[in-house]
Design a protein around this nucleic acid. Sequence first.
RNA 1: GGCCCCGUCGUCUAGCCAGGUCUAGGACAUCAGGUUUUCAUCCUGGUAACACGGGUUCGAAUCCCGUCGGGGUCACCA
Length: 491
Amino acid sequence: MTKKVRVRFAPSPTGYLHVGGARTALFNWLFARQQGGTYILRMEDTDEARNTDEARRTIFQGLHWLGLDPDEGPEQGGPCAPYSQSERQAIYARCIEELKAKGGVYPCFCTKERLSQLRAEQERTRQTFRYDRHCRSLTAAEIERRIAGGEAPTWRLKVPPGETVLVDLVRGRIVVGHDDVEDIILVRADGTPIYNLAVVIDDHTMGVTHVLRGEDHLTNCFKQIILFKAFGWDVPEYGHLPLILAPAGEGKLSKRKHKEAALDHYIDIGYHVEALINWLALIGWSYDDKTEIMTRAELTERFTIARVGSGGARLNLDKLLHMSGEYIRKTPLETVLAETTPRLVKAGYVSNPPTAEEAVKIRALVRAEHERLKAYGEIVGMAKWAFERDLVIEPEAQKNLRKHPGSSDMLRAYADTLTDPLPSISELEAQGRAFAAARGIGFGQFVHPVRAALTGRTQGPPLFDCLTILGPAEATRRLRHGATLASAPSA
RNA sequence: GGCCCCGUCGUCUAGCCAGGUCUAGGACAUCAGGUUUUCAUCCUGGUAACACGGGUUCGAAUCCCGUCGGGGUCACCA
C-alpha cells in the first residue's frame, strides 16, 4: 500500500507571484488532483525583513485567480498547521535538538571574518569555495568550554563520507560525491534554522511524499537528502522541473529584468485564465505530438511526471496570446462583458457603474469585438474610437475618405437616411446595400469612406455594428464631419 | 572556476528509454493564396531543425565518448 500523495507549493513571499512559481503550483495541483492527494501551500517566510502581509496576500490572490487554492495552507489551515515557517519556530527548535543528539550537525565557532578570509584565499588559489571543516574536529571538552565561555556557534551539516544518489522523477539517476557537498550552516548563531533545514523539517512533519519544484533546487536536494538521513526520516520522491527562461534568452526570468516574470502582469493584460493554465501546463510538459488545447479536467487526467521534459523553456508570449484568443472566442458574451466592463470603466470611457445607455453601448461594442479579442485588456484600445470625443482619423482612413470624388456628397446623403432609432444590423446592411446600388457605386466604395468617417480606422468590427455602437445621433454627426473633411483640400 | 542539469524548425515541443515505419510530426510566429464590406476568424499551401566531431551497428535524431554551446548552483537568503 503506497502512501497517500501529499505535495506542496512553497513560495517565499517576496512581493509577487512568479510565473515559474505559478507553473510549479499548477504541476503540484495537477499531480495531487490526479492522484487523489493533497496539495499544500507553505509560506517560506523566515526572512522577516522582506516579508510583508501584502506579499503574502499577493500569493494567496494569485493562486486564487488561477483556481489553484490549496487544500491545506495558511488561510485554510489543516492538520499540520501552522503553514507559515515564521510560525513554526517551536517545531524547528525541537527538531534541532534531535538533530544535535543524533550527531547530524556540529558546532562551528568560526567568525564571519575567518570565513571571508578563507573565501578570499580560496579564490586566490582558484579553488572551489567550501568550508574547510575547521571546527569539525573540535573535542567535546573544547566545545563545552567555548559555549560556557559565552560563544554562540552556528551548527553545520556533518556530511558523511560517501555519495548520494537521487533518482529524480524528471531527470533520472543523479549521483553526487560527498566531497562536493559542503558542510553548510543549518542553524544560525541565534538558534534559528536556515532554509535547507526548515524545508526538510517541514516536508517531513507535513508528510510530504513528492516534491515537485524548480531545477534551481537541484543542488540543495543533495544536502536535504543527507539531512533526511541524518534525522533517520524517509526521503520523499523528487522531481525537478525545468526552469523558465527569459523570452530573449538571458538566463532565467527575473523580476527586475522581465515584467513577464510576475503573474500580475498576465492578469493585467487580461489573458483568459484557462488559457494561461493551459499554456503554463505546456511549459515543460506535453501530452503527445498533437494535442495542445486542453481543459483543466483533461490536464488533470493526462498529466504525468514522466512526460515532463528536462530542458529549460523560453517563454512564448505569442502563443499564449493566441491560445487566450481561442479561449475567449469560446467564452459566453456575458462573461466577456463582465471581464471587459471594469476595464472600460478604469479607462474612463464610461461612468462607474455604467449608465443604462452606456451599458447598451458597451454590450454592442463587446459583442462586435468579441471575435477579435485575444486578451481582455485589449478592449481598451479597441474601444477608443467609439468613445473618443474628437475622433482621430488615421492616415490610411483619411485616404479612404478622399479616394473617390463623390465621397463627400455620398456621406452626407447617407447620413440623411439614418433613422432614430436605428433598425437591426441586418436591416441596416440591406439599406446600405440598396443605398450604394441606387447611387451606382460599388459596395466597397460605400463602405470604406463610411468606416473612415465613423471610426477613423481602416479595421474593426463589421461596419453596421460600428453604426449601431455609435447610435444614430453620433453616427450622423461623424458622417457629416467626415463629409466636410472629404471635401476639404488635402493637407 | 568546482559541481550539477540541458542541447530537434525563430520559439514551445513529438520522436530518444525498448536504433530501421523520420525524405523528422504538431503548435505559435512568418510567407503565399482563398473566404469576408475592413480587420479578425476560418480554410489551403510554403519556408524552416536532429549543435559539432568521432565511435558502435547492415543501419543512429535515437546508444557510447569527446568538443562546443546554454542554464543552474556555490550566504549565519529562500
